[in-house]
């Protein structure tokens, strides 16, 4: 049999198709947003419905420092994206590590907050509706931060061993997309939990 294509080659240009990595990550983000939406809706619906204390106003403190850390990490990962695109690996390493540090600071802050809530205020996930919805929503977000950090660390290890090159720009950007999403979700969680809900 012949291997020649008998379909006449047409003047059709090759299609300008979007990158599958980006499309895949955006789809994942849409799916994850739906999960967060349900948790946020549950949180908002149950505001003030707890039958007994403690209430958010009594125990919650607004984590300004934490929020600044996490949101600024989005800026640093953006710098890192720009650096790898221009093949400046030193800078990339610097900005990437900064992002990771800020993420870790955020997690430590959350841990300290929870420690205070649990041992000082006696609020656990089973105490009341507020506890249930608070730990679920903030915990779900923190889980995403942990997953994001693990992936960022993986890239860091590969960078230190010299495996990450300019040609990986797109993959780095896809991963950064996820990190931006995690940060954006925090804006929603912060607004709902610490501003509306308090």
């Amino acid at each position: 049999m012949s291997t020649i294509s008998l379909v006449p080659l047409t003047p059709d240009q090759p299609l300008d198709l979007p990158s599958r990595g980006r499309v895949g990550m955006l789809s994942l983000i849409i799916g994850e947003s739906a999960i967060f939406t349900i948790f946020v809706v549950a949180y908002v619906f149950y505001i003030g419905k707890s039958l007994y204390g403690p209430t958010p106003a009594q125990v919650l403190e607004v984590p300004i420092f934490n929020t600044v850390c996490l949101l600024s990490s989005s800026f640093f990962i953006w710098l890192a994206e720009g650096s790898i695109e221009k093949n400046r690996m030193r800078r990339f390493l610097l900005w990437w590590s900064t992002t990771i540090c800020l993420g870790i600071v955020f997690l430590v802050g959350t841990a300290r907050e929870w420690l205070k809530l649990i041992y000082h205020d006696g609020l656990t996930i089973r105490t009341n509706l507020f506890g249930t919805t608070f730990y679920s929503l903030v915990g779900l977000h923190a889980t995403h931060v942990v997953v994001g950090l693990l992936m960022l660390l993986l890239v860091l290890v590969f960078t230190l061993t010299g495996h990450v090159k300019e040609s990986h720009t797109e993959r780095i950007q896809v991963l950064a997309l996820y990190w931006h999403f995690v940060d954006a979700v925090w804006v929603v969680v912060f607004t709902v939990v610490y501003i509306i809900g308090r």
């Binding site: 799916g31 739906a34 349900i38 948790f39 149950y46 089973r126 679920s136």
Partner: peptide
């Protein structure tokens, strides 16, 4: 569509295992 179910089932498991009140 499938993700809200996943979310609701996570809540159900929180209720069942961690003593949540959803």
């Amino acid at each position: 569509t499938i993700t809200p179910l996943t979310a609701a089932q996570i809540m159900l498991l929180i209720d069942r295992y961690l003593g949540g009140h959803f």
